[in-house]
Amino acid sequence: MKKQSEQSLQNMMAEYQAVTGSNVMQQLEQLAAPLKGARVLHINSTKEGGGVAEILHKLIPLKQALGIEADWDVISGNQEFYQCTKGFHNALQGMRQSISEKLLQNYEKINRENEEKLRSKLKEADFVFIHDPQPAPLLKLIPERRGKWIWRCHIDASKPYREVWKYLREWITPYDASIFSLPEFAQPLPHTIYNSFQH
């Protein structure tokens, strides 16, 4: 994602402050201070449309304005890839899904292709946020990674269709942490699970 000019970022912060007041902005600055200069990379699968893209369009400039070297890349896939990940989405929400071996192989192949394109950035990033299941295999494909990797699940995974969750869990387990929107949406995982909404 192209970084906005300093002036544009400053204007954005002033607009935020007009709404939140200065206390909130000072708190954000204090939170960001230890991360100044850190390379933070977000990865998802859609540039426009959908809640994740909406969040990232706002979150990345905010992090940049706070001195974090935030960036956002979007993985690309073919029609079968999106058919497969649509199945994942439905399965995490509890719908019985039959996802063929062929679709799963394509899912992994697309992730390998994207890993080749993004390898240097993924390797060098201090923090990598992987959004939802689409790019989840990237972590295992970068054994030489140096940063902390966080899986951000935007889906209610409280009662997933087990066959699909068993497959996805293999990719997600090695992450350093996960973030679910609510504690009720989470699945047990062997790492720290944060909640984005303070419940």
Binding site: Q27, P183, A186, P188, L189, T192, Y194, N195, Q198
Partner: peptide
């Protein structure tokens, strides 16, 4: 201060 919620699982 603020509290960050963490699930115990």
């Amino acid at each position: 201060c603020a509290l960050i919620t963490i699930a115990t699982g």
